[in-house]
Amino acid sequence: MSQKQRDLLELGRLEYLQALVTEFQVTESPEAKEQVLANLANFAYDPKNYEYLRQLQVLDLFLDMLTEDNEILVEFAIGGLCNLCLDKTNKDYILEADGVAPVINCLSSSNEETVMSAVTTLMYLTTPQSRQQTTAFAVVECMLRFSLSANRRLSNLARVFLEDYCSPVQVEEARNLSKHTAVGIPLPKD
């Protein structure tokens, strides 16, 4: 038993991450799942781990978790994606796996951190090829609303998105349409 633990302590990075992934798959407890996912997502911040995370298919794991009902799992997964999607290989992988759509879905989350991670992820996933998808009309419209948010962090991100990743024409179109349909304007209560 203690020998086992000792071995565990001496494991290297890859083995440690492997142990995390295994724990994630094996565990029944939702709380442990969350914690392990949070760990993995934090490891994804450091480019040193990218190679290992790819080997262990953690990218797929993150992408799968985006469609979970558990909001915490979604928040941690999109955080992890946000951390690793700048790397060229990871970016290509996510784009090929049709990762943009579930990321866009995260924009409608009620969790602020999830939304902000999603906005940043979309920026980082934008390439000449994926641009069509990442700056789709609905996304631009969404960003317009976020840019008016009282949350300064969110409005800053949205404004960077609109100014740097969308064309003025796109923004104008979205603005005009949202004017007509009054999207995002809360209806008065009674």
């Binding site: 565990l8 440690y16 995390l20 949070a38 760990n39 951190e113 991670s117």
Partner: peptide
């Protein structure tokens, strides 16, 4: 700080946020 994975389950330590550029 290489905490054995199993410990995460038993401890009271909770990671509340994922650290991102945001």
């Amino acid at each position: 700080l290489q905490i054995p994975v199993a410990v995460l389950r038993y401890s009271k330590l909770k990671i509340k946020t994922v650290y991102t550029v945001n």
